[in-house]
Design a protein around this nucleic acid. Structure first.
Lengths: 132, 132
DNA sequence: TTTGTATGTTATTTTTTCTAACATCGTATT
DNA sequence: AATACGATGTTAGAAAAAATAACATACAAA
């Protein structure tokens, strides 16, 4: 079994993903609603997440911290997908300029807002008060 | 975070373990009852299984297929544990205080694991083939 | 001010998991 | 043959987790 396959395997319930990403269920479902992730479903309709999903969610969190909105994040993800396609085939990415325009705008917004508060140290998360 | 810890991280609900191992819940709980595995518990008392647990269960299934009973399997597992202890005690001679320091650190790691907090990037190395 | 986006909150229902008890089936023992 | 034991099936009832949906809210943008 390849590593890629294992990483794409839907194994985790939403409660675990919440802990791994420090996102609320509401947030995770909202991002799914906006097609940023597409977790599998169990036979009983439970969302089952892969490690790839968790990675995506962690990146969503970072991009949101940077002030980028849903549409921007979607674009980033789509771009990456297209880029992968280009690598394997010879197709050109189509909406490059449109993408750059959006990203430029978002980055400006982010800079204006000067969100220096986030990007907390990694260790801080590792030593939280117990029992929350 | 070491690979061993990643493999020991309790992530999976019993339903997923059932699929991965093709064992029934009854069987899995029975093997736990006989101390062949010791899955973690969520705050709400749900069993949460690690990849190590899944590996153990797969091996239990094989040994059962070979006609070995609970006691035999337990012996096999205990022997392996002892063998590992011998290996590491042969390799390093450490003082009591060093040992306590190591244990203290491991307890911290275990707490981190319980919170299941991960940084982005950790996951990219989470799933690895057993032999690597 | 009004709007829109991201998220919180709450209610209700369904699914999952738990423990515990009793049933069954095959194998070994008497 | 009858019995006992080990491994697993089955069922009931309770508790936890997770789903959808609706309404609320905070805050930035227009």
């Amino acid at each position: 079994m390849s590593r890629e396959f294992r990483r794409a395997m839907p194994l985790l319930p939403i409660s675990m993903v919440m802990q791994l990403t420090e996102l609320t269920a509401r947030q995770i479902r909202y991002y799914e609603e906006h097609k940023l992730i597409e977790p599998a479903r169990s036979e009983g309709n439970r969302r089952m997440f892969s490690l790839d999903d968790v990675d995506a969610l962690l990146e969503i969190r970072e991009l949101l911290d940077q002030g980028i909105n849903m549409a921007g994040i979607k674009k980033v993800f789509d771009m990456r997908k297209n880029n992968n396609n280009v690598k394997s085939s010879n197709k050109m990415a189509i909406s490059d300029s449109e993408l750059r325009a959006i990203l430029r705008e978002e980055m400006q917004q982010a800079q204006i807002m000067q969100k220096a508060s986030l990007r907390q140290g990694d260790l801080s998360r590792f030593f939280q008060a117990k029992g929350e």
